[in-house]
Simulated scan of single mutants.
Amino acid sequence: METAENPGTYVKDGQEFSRDMRYIPSRITKDGRDGYPVEAGRYRLVAARACPWANRAVIVRRLLGLEDAISLGLCGPTHDARSWTFDLDPGGVDPVLGIERIQDAYFARFPDYERGITVPVIVDVPTGQVVTNDFPTMTLDFSSEWTEHHRDGAPDLYPDAHKDELDEVMDLVFRDVNNGVYRCGFAGTQESYEKAYDRLFARLDWLSERLTNQRYLVGDTITEADVRLFTTLVRFDAVYHGHFKCNRNKLTEMPVLWAYTRDLFQTPGFGDTIDFDQIKDHYYIVHSEINPTQIVPKGPDLTNWLSAHNREHLGGRPFGDGTPPPPVRASEAVPALM
């Protein structure tokens, strides 16, 4: 089954959307038990600004200060039925991997690879082979296995004291929100669409209530749970409200979640990874089954992302005992909101 971040037919008539979660399970660990030891400079994270699952990895890499340890390659926002492409790079070739399509890294390790060609993906640069595309484990490993290469002041995004609660909250957010918007957008029946729609907004209401009196999802600092929720909410009005028919409310009409998302957007490491033009181009051009004209909406207005969120009164320490990441590198900067 194709997923939203790999090529293929997304809407299956008469069927409920089901995400294929069979990702490549190899892990990069301190002990190298899968054959891939933590080693600065050896691996390349390949992502796309458009993709919310890849956006997670880009944010966590930046918050932890892993830029020197793990290089970043970026695919363009649109692709054909074969694979994500490096059309943002000169000549359409990734300057480190020397390939035009990320599928080449998959096939270098698995010549008969039949599942989705997804991002984010980590590639072993010396061999040019994919290591893993297991996005939920990838970011947790950035926190736990790459500690030797974290920047001074890096936050603890997966603190031991809150792991059980984090796992529970992240599971609910994934099922009903992160994947829920896709279950709406790629529903093949009216019944499956309405079921997903109801679950999505019931969970958003639950999150609104949870965040009314606390600044972050779990504890009083930013954690992995906030990263995972943010990448869906930041795309909500630009894409999911209209394109995926998640139209009970816009994010801007849900006061608590709108303020929460702006709070994160204005936090170093979050908003400075977001390119709204690439996000819209991907969804409205690639998903031609949903949007056959491939016309990309001109809106929404983005200037309100920088308006005051007024959530400081809830307390909380965004980075705990740590510090904000330094300014984003020029080579990885996104267009600034005017």
Score class of each variant (00 low, 15 high):
122 I>N: 03
259 A>W: 06
134 D>Y: 08
64 L>N: 06
126 P>A: 07
294 Q>K: 11
323 T>G: 04
234 V>Y: 11
288 S>Q: 12
203 R>A: 15
126 P>I: 08
130 V>Y: 10
144 S>H: 15
329 R>Y: 00
201 F>V: 05
137 T>N: 14
111 P>H: 09
330 A>D: 12
282 H>T: 07
204 L>D: 11
243 H>G: 11
150 H>R: 03
290 I>K: 09
163 K>I: 09
237 D>K: 11
187 A>D: 10
273 T>F: 00
294 Q>M: 11
10 Y>P: 03
12 K>Q: 14
155 P>T: 12
56 R>V: 11
238 A>G: 00
115 R>T: 14
100 E>H: 14
316 G>F: 12
194 E>N: 14
27 R>D: 01
193 Y>N: 07
286 V>Q: 01
260 Y>E: 09
316 G>Y: 10
201 F>I: 06
9 T>R: 15
228 R>G: 13
251 L>G: 09
136 P>N: 09
247 N>K: 09
93 V>Q: 08
10 Y>A: 10
265 F>G: 13
156 D>V: 10
253 E>Y: 08
78 T>H: 00
240 Y>W: 01
313 H>P: 05
175 R>W: 08
307 S>V: 13
23 Y>C: 10
76 G>K: 00
273 T>C: 01
227 V>D: 06
64 L>S: 09
170 M>G: 08
280 K>S: 08
192 S>W: 01
93 V>L: 06
163 K>Y: 03
199 R>P: 00
86 F>V: 13
336 A>V: 08
119 V>R: 01
203 R>I: 01
167 D>V: 13
73 G>K: 01
337 L>S: 12
88 L>M: 07
231 T>V: 15
4 A>N: 05
247 N>A: 13
86 F>R: 09
155 P>S: 07
26 S>N: 05
167 D>E: 06
192 S>R: 03
338 M>H: 15
274 I>H: 05
327 P>D: 06
242 G>D: 15
139 T>H: 04
75 C>N: 08
300 P>A: 12
165 E>R: 15
215 R>C: 03
